[in-house]
């Protein structure tokens, strides 16, 4: 993990001096973070700490104001097929007229390329992924008729269908029932067992300590990162959850104001 470089070759993910700004206002400052497969890695921090932004920055969904992110030593654009992304559940419209199967099949779209439609092979793959998250029997249901936990598992199945090596999940356990939570953790552990890396934005410290190998504590900047036991110390947690970092916040505002009034 970060700090000790006994690692051979490039890291699975490496954030190097990453700064992200919304508009002109920085929300993440100078993040240095290296994560290696296999593993279950959690990004933890208070509301508004920039956890989701960190994922989106790595995936090119928000522009970097500074720094670089590399996967397997390469820029994201070169390896995007190898990276699966599960956004927060609330970011999509669950009344959208598609079935569960339709959504999982989307995971196979990227490897199909232009003009090719999903065929029997893709359908088999999607069905297998649905089975893996325990939803084989609702494949034909409209997605709005599922519970929150089932919807989250549909999203996970879609990411599985992408057959990636690195998975990014944004709050996959928010508002999820106990059964779905167990199922999701079981699948994530299986992915680790297959040698993959799973990075999860997470909010619950109790389950974090129990399930994850590595943790990064984030509050607009990286507070600490490394093996779970060494990072989740009371001192680190106090520094992460001490309240908004007034100085960083105010500097961000000042930068924004200066651009505005110019």
């Amino acid at each position: 993990m970060a700090g000790e470089d006994r690692h051979q070759g490039p890291h699975t993910i490496e954030f190097h001096d990453v700064t992200v700004a919304y508009g002109r206002r920085p929300v993440l400052w100078n993040i240095d973070l290296a994560i290696d497969a296999p593993g279950l890695f959690a990004i933890i921090g208070p509301n508004g700490a920039g956890k989701s932004t960190l994922l989106k920055a790595a995936l090119g969904l928000v522009p970097l104001a500074g720094g670089t992110v590399t996967f397997f030593g390469k820029p994201f654009a070169d390896v995007r097929r190898r990276i699966g992304y599960v956004p927060q559940r609330e970011t999509v419209d669950w009344d959208f007229p598609v079935s569960v199967m339709d959504v999982v099949l989307m995971g196979t779209y990227p490897r199909l390329g232009w003009f090719r439609r999903p065929g029997p092979a893709e359908r088999d793959c999607a069905r297998a992924c649905l089975g893996r998250v325990g939803l084989a029997d609702v494949a034909d249901r409209q997605i709005g008729r599922l519970s929150g936990g089932q919807q989250q598992r549909v999203f996970l199945a879609r990411a599985l269908a992408q057959q990636a090596d690195v998975y990014f999940l944004d709050e996959p356990l928010a508002g999820v029932d106990a059964r779905s939570q167990d199922q999701i953790f079981r699948v994530l552990s299986e992915l680790r067992g297959e040698g993959r890396l799973v990075v999860v934005v997470h909010h619950d410290l109790r389950t974090a300590a129990e399930w994850f190998d590595g943790v990064a504590l984030v509050d607009m900047r990286l507070v600490a990162s490394g093996p779970t036991a060494s990072v989740l110390t009371s001192d680190n947690l106090r520094r992460t959850y001490a309240g908004p970092l007034d100085v960083l916040d105010e500097i961000g505002l000042a930068v924004e104001q200066a651009r505005r009034t110019r």
Partner: peptide
Amino acid sequence: LTWKEQLFAAFDPDAARAAG
């Protein structure tokens, strides 16, 4: 011809963009 692209982009533009 672009049915799957339209479908994915309409339902979940962020995931679609991340997937290329």
